[in-house]
């Protein structure tokens, strides 16, 4: 199989920066990539399994990548979440694609 990994930079909740490779062909989203590298303790991220229902995967987008537009449910969840900023997104709603190579994000605090 052809390798199609991209590079991501993820700042965890303790402020530590991680450079990771993420596959683009495994139907993974950003929340799942973070879990697969265990960059946030189990049980503190992905609580709703990725249904835009918990905001435990909230992150701040730091690079100026063009990301897929927010759907209604993501927008609705973010409107109820805490610590929301202009650049907040739900990691579980962002599917990893080749265009995201070099994306830099920071995890929002646990709530």
């Amino acid at each position: 199989m052809e390798m199609q990994d991209i590079k991501l930079t993820i700042i965890d909740r303790d402020g530590v920066t991680h450079d990771v490779d993420a596959p683009t062909d495994m139907a993974m989203n950003l929340m799942e990539v973070i879990r697969s590298y265990e960059l946030a303790p189990e049980g503190t991220i992905g609580i709703c399994g990725g249904m835009a229902m918990c905001a435990s995967c909230q992150c701040y987008v730091l690079s100026d990548h063009e990301l897929p537009e927010m759907q209604d449910d993501e927008e609705a969840m973010l409107s109820e979440a805490f610590d929301v900023q202009e650049n907040s997104r739900l990691g579980c709603q962002i599917q990893i694609t080749p265009e995201m190579d070099g994306l830099k994000i920071e995890l929002a605090p646990e709530s």
Binding site: E38, P41, E42, G43, T44, I47, M53, C54, A55, S56, E80, F82, S111
Partner: peptide, 22 residues
Amino acid sequence: LFGLSPKLGPIADWGLEIEKNA
């Protein structure tokens, strides 16, 4: 009603061997 989030909480201090919040 802003949802509930699970916390292992007091069980973490019961002297049980804990790994990855489990």
